[in-house]
Design a protein around this nucleic acid. Structure first.
Lengths: 365, 365
DNA sequence: GTGCGGAATGTTTACGTAAACATGTTGGAT
DNA sequence: ATCCAACATGTTTACGTAAACATTCCGCAC
């Protein structure tokens, strides 16, 4: 039963001349190491896991044998025995948006710090089938817990069909009543942005929103409206974008024609970029004629013409909290806690905002 | 031995009132399904894997039992038995660059199509320790093959310390003599870009390069130089950037002061954006005074002021080829093929390029 | 000297699945 | 009536690991 091996000792650069031996079954197992070291496989296991109760000399022998054979623990067997994979699945709909990417990166980093690996489960279509497919695969996947980055309202799904026994944390969603949700404080950030423009003396603030299906876009638009209403300002018609710079440009072309419009809050930096181009082409200077605020603070924002005032999101913190949350849930087993955790934002003021052309020194009336 | 279960039947919404039963061991196995369906576990296995030779009626019974118990195959056991995980590991150094992200996305998509999942292995530091750490984890990870996205020269590593029995494909590297490498045709794309500017009548082309450690940056810079030399043009001093828009801006401030400089090739679109801002601030109009070409064709490029002429990379194709390559290697076992596959680029001509101010109708002399 | 505790190591077993092999059952050809 | 395919299903076993339990050996207290 142990025979098969031999062939494969990964010795130092013994390039096999012509036909390499038939491979496949020749993984080195504890049994091989044990045989070579002249001990039982249990002892190898103990050494491999750093358990105490192994003699100094024996341990050294085993270590040598392991190195010599190039032994690698078999994670499948290990997972089977232990009942856990030390892996977190991440379900997301696209890697095309800045937010998702940065959240993913942060999740990967924090997970790595905790000794967990990340398995990516892309969902092709944001439909019931798409999600169901992802979760079906997921159910069979080597994963202990799942983080769903669900930035979009599902076309035809009310509830996520989650597999049993897998803990879930959702980033960027409104499912706080059903799952644990970690999200950026969209409302807070938006409020800051709008207030900043109002405080500069603008009568009101226009808005280019993200796509209607996006939770973040919805929340930013709602908070924009609410902030204006609270301040007793007129709420101008909303320009609907789709996150892309191109859509910001198109919205900007309209806005640029309206001399009333002196302050615009774009729901993300890319659309702000498109807006900037539209304003530039229309001959309206930023920030002298029109002030612009974005959202996200992408790395390029500081190099826009002109450098963009925007709302900075702490994606790293979102990632950290997602991982922490999911691990806590795993360990505590019970109490499938729900509710939403908000990660605060802060404004980065650069050169795309200024008082309006006819700057009234006191708050307008 | 089968006892443990019972507690957990995920029946339709039977919300347990107060304390949920102690969990952990109660995963539903084939044995449970078999018992409920009144068959042997082997029959369950056959149904689960869609093997033939199971009676219609029996199959239906088993299916019912599976649904009723919420059975999920245990991937650890499956992997252990089959000797494969149906998972590909992806090692990368950062998710901060457009190229990496888009390649990753493409890899994830193609892998999913092939029924493979993706495990992310971020390397924190591009040093020997960092890489070694990643590969150590990797060795214990549930992965059948690895794709390395190595866009950067390792500070202190000559050769990748790869674990045995794991097939590898490298994206974006110069390790073609050691591994299979899939890369964008950097040289071809650069040549096109430079020739485009030359053909418009510019005497020569300036270059803002990426960071020195980046393979792609190296290759783009080299091809730029080579193309100019082939055409017998003067090679202006190279401006070194670091991919960021900010660095493009800094380089642009210098370039803008030089009236000789009428055409610039930036090694990526972000730097081109910074350059655009610098030129704009310096009062030099694009494309009338200066022509600019970027590289990558990021989604925003079409919305730059002005829309950027750039070299489009087919990241999806890179991803597809990486996955295809690594799977082929796995299946064919033998012949660890090496060499580099190049994915072609194509130019996207927008509005940032035009003939030079003093447009000579014939090729300049 | 006897016995007992504890350290070092070995043996058994189970994790859940699926290949390989074994058994049983049916119906059609002879 | 008999026998043998062909099919449906059951039984055994192994994958590599690690917990639980068993054994051996030593030294020290009495």
């Amino acid at each position: 039963m142990i025979a098969q091996v031999a062939t494969d000792q990964p010795g130092p650069a013994t390039e096999p001349a012509a036909l390499p031996a038939p491979r496949r079954t020749q993984r080195v197992s504890m049994a091989h190491v044990a045989r070579l070291a002249g001990v039982s496989s249990q002892t190898v296991s103990r050494v491999s896991n750093g358990h105490p109760g192994v003699g100094e000399e024996t341990r050294a022998q085993v270590l040598t044998a392991m190195k010599q054979l190039g032994y690698r623990p078999n994670s499948a067997a290990r997972a089977l025995k232990r009942g856990e994979f030390r892996t977190i699945g991440v379900i997301l709909f696209t890697l095309a948006t800045t937010g998702n990417i940065r959240t993913l990166e942060a999740i990967a980093t924090s997970a790595a710090n905790e000794g967990y690996a990340i398995t990516l489960i892309p969902v092709t279509a944001p439909t019931q089938d798409g999600v169901r497919g992802a979760f079906t695969r997921l159910g069979e996947l080597a994963v202990d817990a799942v983080i769903v980055i669900m930035e979009v309202t599902l076309a035809d799904v009310g509830v996520l069909p989650l597999p049993p026994h897998v803990q879930v944390v959702v980033a960027d969603s409104n499912a706080g009543d059903r799952y644990s949700v970690v999200d950026t404080d969209q409302a807070g950030g938006t409020r800051e942005a709008v207030r900043h423009l109002l405080d500069l003396g603008h009568r009101t603030v226009w808005h280019i929103s993200g796509p209607a299906e996006s939770f973040a876009a919805q929340r930013r638009a709602r908070a924009w409206r609410a902030t204006l209403e609270e301040a007793g300002r007129e709420v101008p018609p909303l320009a609907a974008g789709d996150w892309s710079a191109e859509s910001g440009y198109r919205a900007g072309l309209l806005l640029a024609r309206n001399p009333e419009c002196t302050a615009v809050f774009a729901a993300n930096d890319q659309m702000a970029l498109g807006l900037l181009r539209a304003l530039h082409e229309a001959g309206r200077s930023v920030p002298h004629d029109v002030s612009v605020v974005g959202f996200d603070d992408i790395p390029e924002a500081g190099s826009f013409p002109p450098p963009l005032t925007t709302v900075h999101q702490d994606f790293a913190e979102v990632g950290r909290r997602c991982v922490a949350g999911v691990l806590r849930k795993m360990r505590e087993e019970h109490a499938p806690e729900r509710g939403t955790t908000l990660v605060p934002t802060h404004m980065v003021i650069r050169h795309s905002t200024a008082p309006p052309p006819t700057a009234p020194p006191a708050p307008a009336g």
